[in-house]
Amino acid sequence: MPPTWNLPEYLERKRDLVEAYREQLRSPDAAPAPLRATVKVAAGTGARPIQMREHIVMTDAGAILGGHGLGPTAPELLLGALASCLAHSALVIAADRGLHLEQLEIEVTGQLDYRGTLAVTDNVPVAPTDLAYLLRVTGTLSPEEVATLERDIAELCPILRALTNPTPVTGRTEVVVP
């Protein structure tokens, strides 16, 4: 990808690519894309490298919890995943609708009360709370286009939907004898 593209030029290219992919997805053979992430805890540090396809993202705790600050914590990564998904969803929507964006920035905030995660207090939530995002766009958008962008993001952003309409997660433990 040429580094000289500005965001409007990128969105023009993205529109064509998204439409071509949509055409593939209309095939009777189309199926959901498999997702997978694996972690093997680093014995000496407790750091948690996450392998996703050919990518590795390092996660770790701060020193107060025995970590070394080698990467974001899992709750921070959740906010990062939401920010990234919101941004990508906004790009796809802008490309689809022909919205003129010069810049796009997402800020996601929240808080985590470790009294809950460390079982210090029973009535404190374990999950992150007060999640909020701010979508900052530089461009020429009418109030109607802003409303469409907000509505479509709420409807089409997979991570936002997973957080606001939770998907059941199943789990099990497998014991491997050394």
Rank of each mutant, 00 (worst) to 15 (best):
P128T: 02
L141D: 03
A43G: 01
A83C: 04
V177Q: 14
R48G: 11
L101E: 08
G46P: 09
G69F: 09
P28Y: 07
P166K: 09
E145L: 01
L160A: 15
Y133V: 06
L35K: 12
D29T: 12
T173N: 02
V57M: 10
V146S: 03
I50L: 12
V169H: 01
T138D: 12
S27V: 11
E19I: 01
I106T: 07
L135P: 01
P28M: 06
P32T: 08
V137I: 11
V41S: 08
A162S: 15
T73F: 00
T148W: 05
A132H: 14
D29M: 09
H88W: 01
A83L: 06
N165T: 10
D122Q: 13
T140E: 15
K14F: 04
V108H: 11
P168Y: 04
A20I: 13
P168A: 11
A90E: 12
K14P: 03
R26L: 11
E145H: 11
E76K: 03
P125K: 04
G46V: 10
H68S: 13
R22A: 09
V39L: 13
T148F: 08
H100K: 10
S142K: 03
H68D: 11
G69K: 01
Y10S: 13
L65T: 13
I56Q: 14
L86K: 07
E54P: 01
G80T: 08
K40E: 13
E174N: 11
D130E: 15
T4P: 01
L77I: 02
H55Q: 15
G71N: 07
L17R: 14
T173W: 04
T140D: 15
E150W: 00
M58N: 01
E102N: 13
N123H: 14
Q103A: 15
I106C: 07
